[in-house]
Design a protein around this nucleic acid. Structure first.
Lengths: 142, 142
DNA sequence: AAGTTTTCTTGACTCGTTCAAGAGACGGGT
DNA sequence: ACCCGTCTCTTGAACGAGTCAAGAAAACTT
């Protein structure tokens, strides 16, 4: 888990002002992979009791724009955030409970970027979501 | 474009009652790939002037559940529907304007279903979204 | 330390989607 | 051909994640 000074370093490196809410949000996302905004707000309020939800929304947007965190949003889910960026990994999502786990890209380095016919689009990312059921849900419903 | 009788056939085949709203919605989705709910409502109202939006929401859910249409929802987009089902194709989405185009699966038949480490999940579908910019947006922003 | 700009607080608001209750339509059985 | 049980549609209200806007407060610059 990065120390506070590391988090500040990251912010400065991205040319973002260092503020308490930003450090706290960045730490929350590092600690809590795939957390939704509400969880982040909760986590952050453990550190700064009275941050506004708006501040957290703003910070999450700023960090996402700077590439310090990544935003993912599978269908039927609210926005979720993770600090693991820049390695082109993917996700498995449970259809029943919404649980998310990381999946390394099966193909190799920057692989998925190849579409058969791209319709003239300039593609910069391939997002893969594997849909299924997690072990817990598979067992519960037998 | 399937005739009305074909659409009715599809509904019966899926053990769904045949109603005017259902036929109209099914036709609208066939005519209008990647349409959002609002567009579908508009299209359907050209045929049945006073369907409630709720009816359309209900029908879209029923058709999706029956596998007659597919629901997709890229991040930052409302729900969209398409009638092309069962062929494991994917989508390119424009980051600027949200335009969507179909992309055939590059790898082969039921390919993408292979994740490196599935964390115990039982995977039944691999959804791929290619992110980029469409020709129009690429040109406009030069 | 003062000034400039960015960020945070407060509070209202939007909009896609869902909930709930009752009226109406579908279709299997007589 | 009709009736009846069930499913579907109408109406109208509600929900909730996220956004907008204006002013107060904090961060960096010099």
């Amino acid at each position: 888990m990065p120390a506070t000074s590391d988090l500040e370093q990251m912010l400065r490196g991205a040319e973002l002002r260092v503020t308490r809410p930003r450090v706290a949000v960045l730490r929350a996302v590092h600690r809590n992979p795939h957390a939704d905004t509400d969880s982040v707000i909760g986590e952050v309020r453990g550190e700064i009791a009275d941050v506004s939800h708006q501040a957290v929304y703003d910070v999450l947007r700023a960090l996402t724009g700077a590439g310090l965190i990544r935003r993912i949003q599978p269908a039927n889910s609210v926005a979720r955030y993770e600090a693991r960026v820049g390695d082109n990994h993917h996700h498995v999502v449970c259809r029943s409970c919404g649980a998310i786990a990381d999946v390394d890209c099966a193909v190799g380095h920057a692989p998925c970027l190849v579409a058969d016919d791209d319709h003239g689009f300039t593609i910069d990312e391939a997002e893969v979501i594997y849909w299924g059921r997690c072990t817990d849900c598979a067992h519960r419903d037998s």
